[in-house]
């Protein structure tokens, strides 16, 4: 019973936060709505007994990533409504259509696939998670999964992130060099 109540409350916060991100005119408030949404998703993880995932959600998404968003918003001073480029009508329509398509996809995944599928297909009536009943420690389970079956994708992700970081540094360096050249010519 109580988990249904917890689910209901956090689901409302998740959706409300998501709406806040889209609808709020002020970038900082939009970012804060995103935080609310992320934290409520963490609560949803906790009622599924995925404690580790919940805390990682808070540390990584709720903490680090949105803090960086806010940091950039504040440093660039784009924290006023006038600074925002409000989307065109066509963009709004495209957004709504793709949102509905995604919603349909999720509904299909939930209702169409029957019970019994435990590798990817999770029915609304079925159990969520691979072996939730005799789950040992969710941390051990996750670690075993990442460092055995999914080791290669895990390392590939690490490489990808490193490449992204180096790419960012290179781009900054290049743009500095470019911007200094015309100045030198003018002088």
């Amino acid at each position: 019973m109580i988990d249904v109540v917890v689910f209901g409350v956090s689901a409302i916060i998740v959706l409300g936060g998501a709406l806040g991100v889209v609808l709020s005119k002020n970038p900082v408030r939009a970012a804060l709505s995103l935080v609310a949404s992320f934290l409520a998703v963490a609560v949803l993880f906790v009622i599924q007994q995925a404690h580790f995932l919940a805390l990682v959600q808070v540390v990584v998404y709720g903490g680090a990533i949105v803090v960086l968003f806010l940091f950039v918003i504040m440093l660039l001073g784009v924290d006023k409504v006038e600074d925002l480029d409000l989307p065109e009508r066509s963009q709004v329509v495209a957004g709504i259509v793709s949102g509905l398509a995604f919603f349909g996809l999720i509904c299909a995944g939930l209702f169409v696939s029957g019970p019994g599928g435990d590798e990817g297909n999770v029915a609304l009536t079925g159990q969520i998670g691979r072996n939730p009943i005799d789950s040992t420690d969710d941390i051990n389970q996750l670690a075993a999964d990442i460092f055995t079956r999914n080791l290669v994708p895990f390392m590939a992700t690490a490489l990808l992130l490193t490449i992204a970081t180096i790419g960012a540094v290179v781009m900054v360096k290049n743009s500095e060099a470019d911007s200094s050249l015309p100045e030198a010519e003018v002088n």
């Binding site: 404690h51 580790f52 805390l55 540390v59 709720g62 903490g63 803090v67 941390i139």
Partner: peptide, 20 residues
């Protein structure tokens, strides 16, 4: 079960107060 991670999570959430 993830006690000490809660400490890290809260210290990263606490940043918002000061920042905002």
């Amino acid at each position: 079960p993830v006690g000490v991670l809660l400490f890290l999570a809260m210290s990263s959430v606490g940043v918002y107060g000061i920042m905002l």
